[in-house]
């Protein structure tokens, strides 16, 4: 049970953990108490929202990957607005370039990871930051890619599908089936013979 002392509560912690944290706080020139309070206030908020430090680490890794691969963030509504202003001919060119960008990204992750499909699964789950249903299923010979994101326009949906097709091509998969409608994609891919 925590006990109170001058606006603070004393709580038990495993001794070896306290010792190691003390080393870190000393290195940063801070008291252990201020170091812990500062971090705990963020951690408690994250846990309160249903997250964890593991989620934060994964999010950080994914963001670092995106950053170094030239991927940026944009509000979905702005992507929808921009694409709605582009004519048919311009859109076709954009989709081609999106495929090429995806192809480059696929090459990038194939070089960076031993298991690029597994890496893709993790990266894709953060591609659409808004609440969405997105999955990369299977592995080996066949891959099924699905996503549902109600806030995407038809053009934005097609853009993301083109990027994904490019990624899969770079990973050695050809598109077997690619269906999309506003905010929904179902696509399947099969490994090409080397």
């Amino acid at each position: 049970m925590p006990s109170r002392s001058q606006g603070r509560k004393l709580i038990f912690v495993q001794a070896d953990i306290v010792d190691k944290l003390m080393e870190i706080s000393n290195r940063e020139g801070r008291t252990l108490s201020s170091f812990i309070s500062d971090i705990l206030s963020d951690v408690v908020r994250i846990y309160g929202d249903g997250g964890s430090i593991k989620d934060a680490v994964r999010s950080y890794m994914v963001a670092s990957m995106h950053r170094s691969a030239g991927i940026m963030l944009i509000p979905v509504n702005l992507m929808n607005t921009i694409l709605s202003r582009v004519d048919r001919e311009g859109l076709d060119e954009i989709y081609r370039n999106a495929y090429e960008s995806g192809y480059w990204y696929g090459r990038y992750i194939s070089v960076k990871f031993d298991n690029p499909i597994e890496a893709l699964r993790i990266l894709v789950s953060s591609t659409l930051l808004a609440p969405t249903d997105i999955s990369v299923e299977g592995g080996g010979e066949a891959i099924l890619f699905r996503f549902i994101a109600s806030n995407l326009s038809s053009e934005s949906t097609k853009l993301l599908l083109s990027i994904f097709e490019g990624v899969m091509s770079a990973l050695g998969y050809k598109t077997e089936r690619a269906e999309y409608t506003r905010g929904i994609v179902i696509a399947s891919f099969r490994k090409t013979v080397a």
Binding site: I46, G70, I71, Y105, L128, L129
Partner: peptide, 20 residues
């Protein structure tokens, strides 16, 4: 960073290749 990404997630951000 996680806090910022969480805001991004909740406020409807997505990713796009910068050059595109």
């Amino acid at each position: 960073e996680y806090r910022a990404m969480d805001y991004g997630r909740r406020s409807g951000f997505t990713t796009i290749p910068e050059n595109l």
